[in-house]
Amino acid sequence: MPEDLIYLDNNATTPIDPRVLDEMMPFLTHNFANAASTHKFGVSAHEAVKKARQQVADLIGADTHEITFTSGATEAINIAIKGVAEAFSSKGKHIVTVSTEHSAVLDTCRYLETKGFEVTYLPVQADGLLELEVVKNAIRADTILVSVMHVNNETGVIQPIQEISDFAHEKGALFMSDCTQSVGKIPVNVDEMGIDLLCFSAHKIYGPKGVGALFIRQRKNRIKIPALLHGGGHERGMRSGTLNVPGIVGLGKACEIAQDEMGENEVKIREMKDYLETELLKIEGTWINGNRDQRLYNVTNIGFEGVDSEALIMGLSNPENGSPMIIVSNGSACTAASIEPSHVLISLGLNYYQAFNCIRISLARFENKQNLVKAIKEITGRILYLKQFQI
């Protein structure tokens, strides 16, 4: 990472861990075999994929045959939701999800509405948490799937997944969770949490872009959903196509490192996040979005009254007079092309203008206190400058 760059947008993507890159390099250079080939060269690639599948399964408490490799969480979400819709439509055509879900879930559900499915979009409270009684009452006899994100990508709010999955199972519905922002950062166990389908991406946990995983429960309550991609029967028929061996190997290594270092990372990153919030909240007209207690330790979504977030972001990323380049965001990178305010913040009750006064700062283990002090100084200075002109 360049010395003059302070990167605080890790919920969008993390830098790749050098240990992950080292693990991948042989499969990008001399060990380039197709993992589906039956010759000795191909078998070596297959063994590397097999090892990575075990590393992924170990991180979330699954079995290896329950893991399907994908190009990322978005693809995994599409396979899961569309697959359940097709496989279980004879039971019902009702799906329950949340208004603050990632666009991959919301857009997929809106697509299914055009195909005759009914979707209930649950509201959240002002702190971003679901009201459990509202969730319970929304699930019906014809509900086939309840999909609730574990950790919100914009606010870091953590939903009570186990309780919600119990509600779903009581009515005979499947429970799915987009765990893209939680896997590798906090403990996630599919059995303890009652998750039937789970999705996540490598590039949120210091792995490569373009690879992710889908967990589909096969023990106890076996779930069989149709494939989204056909053409060779790869991944036990779930996802045809030549496997991205280097990416899969990188995902596996990232999962292994996360399992070993998760607790240590939390202590360090939480300390930096708390310090950051304490300093920025000294600015008049500043507030935190999302529940202060049920929130992931690495993220703060913070509002500055009268400060346009785009002006703040552009100013910080285009520094002058030798200042460092500071990278923050105002929401999900997957909707960055939109000029609409964050749907997550609107769901929390912020008005149009307030939503455009907010930025998301998300930390990672590679950041240090010295850089954070510099960042706070630059952010504060930029905010006070913008407030002066009420931009």
Rank of each mutant, 00 (worst) to 15 (best):
K171C: 08
D274K: 13
V84A: 11
F389T: 12
H94T: 03
I288K: 13
N357M: 06
F215L: 12
G303N: 03
T70P: 06
G241T: 02
Y111N: 04
P187K: 08
T120N: 10
L130E: 06
D260G: 01
T64F: 02
H94Q: 07
L129S: 13
A87Y: 06
G252R: 12
V249C: 06
S37I: 04
H46W: 01
E86R: 15
S201I: 06
G290P: 06
R110E: 13
D127Y: 03
N371H: 14
Q259V: 03
G250C: 11
K224T: 14
T278N: 14
A45M: 02
D127K: 07
A375T: 04
N10V: 00
Y353D: 14
I379Y: 01
E271I: 00
E118D: 06
I161T: 14
N301F: 03
S103A: 15
S44G: 07
P319N: 06
A52Y: 03
L386F: 05
I302L: 06
T68Q: 11
L345S: 12
F32H: 03
I283N: 06
I383F: 00
I288N: 07
G172W: 04
C199S: 14
H203V: 04
V151R: 13
R140T: 13
A62N: 08
K220D: 15
N153Y: 01
D293E: 15
S342L: 02
P15G: 02
N368V: 01
S347M: 13
L59T: 07
G42M: 05
L386T: 05
N78V: 09
V267D: 04
Q259P: 01
A33C: 06
E279T: 01
Q162I: 03
I139Y: 01
I379Q: 04
Y206I: 00
D178T: 06
C179S: 15
R222Y: 07
L348C: 12
S347A: 15
I79S: 10
I313M: 14
Y297S: 03
I77G: 02
G241F: 00
H65W: 10
A80V: 07
Y352V: 07
R292G: 09
I158F: 05
C358K: 03
A87E: 09
T120M: 03
R360A: 13
N10M: 10
E23M: 09
A36G: 04
A213Q: 09
N152P: 08
T242E: 11
K209M: 10
P123D: 15
